[in-house]
Simulated assay, not measured.
Amino acid sequence: MVKLPSPEHVLRLLWCLRVTKTRIYDTNPKILEAFANSGIELIVTVPNEAVAVLTDHAQATEWIATNIGPFLPDTSITGLAVGNEVFTSDDAVLKENVLPAMSALHQALISLGLDSTVHVSTSNSLTVLADSYPPSLGSFRPELEGFIRPFLRFWSNTSGPFWINAYPYFAYKSDPERVPLDYVLFNTGPAGMVEPNTGLRYDNMLYAQVDAVVFAMARYGYGGIEVRVSETGWPSKGDDDEVGATVQNAMLYNRNLVARQMENEGTPLRPQPRLEVYMFALFNENLKPGPTSERNFVMLFLVLSVILCC
């Protein structure tokens, strides 16, 4: 097992990269303490296995008081990600528990006067969509309607975002003959795809995927909810059948996406505000199961820039 750098060293890396927001997948107190007065906003995660107990209001209040309250306001915690890719999991109980847990956590934040600064949401796989191309035909899978509608109502009432884990790499990997590589790498220049129903021009797949989610929400009457990308990235290495997983492509995807973020771009459907994107990941996950690509999403060109400037 590879030992990860200390939280203090990670913080120096993020400062060097001029990162202002990041996401962690737990509530590690050492990390939360290290990020105090850092100027970096944090989204913290409630793991799937902890969701069930937090449906109880008293437990949710205690969880907030223990894991969030002691670190505020020195550590800027701005979001709670309750579970990860729950809608597309096979755990029916988890699906049923996520919204009650989110509601209980939100009520706990209200009782502590933190609801205006800490929003509550959950990260979703793009596979919640039945259709995503063209974006105007974006729609949720019919069997998920009973789950998704109440969540959209919750986010509408609490001004929370819809978080989506969007990976154009997987679309390219599944159909490299028909999905142009330049399109998924933000590398088409002024060309791209003109949406046949809206006339909007898309020069990259990530923005098209995000707008497909907006159209899907609008079909349920919730088109005003903000969509944010809670994960995206490109693997630098893969197995023989994992087309496109190369160092060069990973560097192109990450570099081009960061350039768009620096320009404060929104999507063609929503030019304002800037699309908020969290890039995955700062370090490779050498123990993660599955194909080789799953363990190789480190942001290569960013790490190289850190070595050069720090």
Rank of each mutant, 00 (worst) to 15 (best):
L137D: 11
K21M: 15
E143A: 11
T267M: 05
P7W: 09
A245K: 04
P273Y: 02
E143P: 08
N256Q: 09
S38T: 04
P150G: 10
V243L: 06
D203R: 05
L181Y: 02
L302R: 11
L109Q: 03
G160T: 08
R149A: 12
Y183V: 04
L200S: 03
T88C: 12
L80D: 08
E263W: 00
M279K: 08
G223S: 01
S6L: 12
P29Q: 12
F297T: 05
L252A: 13
T88W: 03
G223T: 00
R260L: 15
F151A: 10
V82S: 04
N254I: 08
D74F: 04
E41T: 11
F186G: 09
S136M: 02
G146F: 07
V194Y: 01
G266L: 06
N37W: 08
V10Q: 11
E177D: 14
P196E: 00
P142G: 10
T117L: 09
L4N: 10
W155Q: 09
Q272Y: 03
L32F: 10
Q107M: 05
D240K: 05
A166S: 15
F35K: 10
M193N: 05
A60L: 08
E226C: 02
F147P: 02
R178M: 06
T267K: 00
L287P: 00
S159C: 11
T61I: 00
A34M: 07
M1G: 08
L181S: 09
A216C: 01
Y253Q: 11
P196W: 04
R228A: 09
V98Q: 12
Y253D: 12
T78F: 07
I43H: 01
T267N: 07
L32W: 07
E143G: 09
L181P: 03
L282T: 03
F170C: 13
A50Y: 07
L72W: 01
L269H: 00
T246G: 01
E49H: 06
N197I: 08
P7V: 09
L275V: 06
G223F: 00
R149P: 02
A65S: 11
Y172C: 13
F140I: 02
V98R: 05
A171Q: 12
L206D: 03
V210M: 08
D182H: 13
T127D: 14
N28C: 13
N157K: 11
L129Y: 01
R23Y: 09
R260A: 10
S305M: 13
T198P: 00
E62D: 12
F151Y: 12
I164W: 07
Y207P: 01
F154Y: 15
V184E: 06
E195T: 00
S121A: 12
R274F: 00
I164C: 14
R228Q: 13
P271C: 07
L42C: 13
Y169P: 10
R178T: 13
A81K: 00
A216S: 04
